[in-house]
């Protein structure tokens, strides 16, 4: 097994054995979405109109919740310093950790989203676009979040700071994620928005590892 996959496996095992990471993120996602009908009223027309937006905004917040743990525990127990000495470049390790992070947060969020769409009376035509946009968009959230998580290692009040850094960078994902669903419902087709999201994902895969690895190196100095 390649070192890359082994690192993914290690992070997955840690997440599963420490337990609850994925469950907590999904729980937060569901609970927060359920709050909205209490806030704006239960009328199906209103909920249907704002369903895509609510699901996406809440997914952003849920993804944000778990970011702090991406490097924090490895930083505290010193594993990160050992990992920096591995023959596998730090950039590739960042990518591996993002992949593992997505598998325990982004993927469960993507799978739960249609259920929440159901609760919010999302138009039936929107479901394929919802699943597709979440599947392409949530990896971007993990990647961008990795830069923020690496930058805030060892900072005072890292958690709040992290959300201040990362949320503005998430705006494009939110815009195109929601636009894909609404375009599909409106009959224009989600394809252009999904392609833009995919382009953004490719850009993030190409650039994030370098920024995050640079941030990790300066944190370890």
């Amino acid at each position: 097994m390649s070192p890359f996959l082994r690192l993914v496996g290690r992070d997955l095992r840690l997440a599963l054995r420490q337990g609850g990471d994925a469950a907590m993120v999904v729980g937060f996602f569901v609970l927060t979405v359920v709050l909205f009908p209490f806030g704006v009223g239960p009328e199906p027309e209103l909920l249907q109109r704002i369903a895509a937006g609510i699901v996406w905004v809440t997914a952003l917040l849920a993804a944000l919740l778990s970011l702090e743990r991406l490097f924090q525990s490895d930083y505290e127990d010193g594993s990160l310093e050992v990992m920096a000495l591995l023959p596998l470049p730090l950039e590739a390790q960042v990518l591996a950790k993002c992949l593992a992070h997505w598998l325990v947060t982004g993927l469960p969020l993507t799978l739960t989203a249609p259920l929440l769409g159901l609760l919010l009376h999302l138009d039936t035509a929107g479901y394929p676009a919802l699943i597709a946009s979440m599947a392409i968009g949530t990896p971007i959230l993990s990647l961008l979040g990795a830069v923020g998580a690496a930058l805030t290692l060892g900072a005072r009040k890292g958690g709040v700071l992290l959300s201040l850094l990362v949320l503005p960078l998430y705006i494009p994902v939110l815009i195109f994620g929601v636009a894909a669903i609404e375009a599909e419902i409106g009959g224009f087709g989600a394809r252009p928005h999904l392609l833009l999201l995919a382009a953004f994902l490719v850009l993030a895969v190409g650039m994030v590892p370098f920024a995050a690895a640079a941030a990790l190196r300066q944190a370890l100095e």
Binding site: G154, L161, A214, Q218, A219
Partner: peptide
């Protein structure tokens, strides 16, 4: 971010990235 570290050079480096 720049002001979040006890060590000023760390903050400067993180801020630059």
């Amino acid at each position: 971010l720049v002001n979040a570290f006890d060590e000023p050079t760390r903050g400067a480096r993180a801020g630059a990235i």
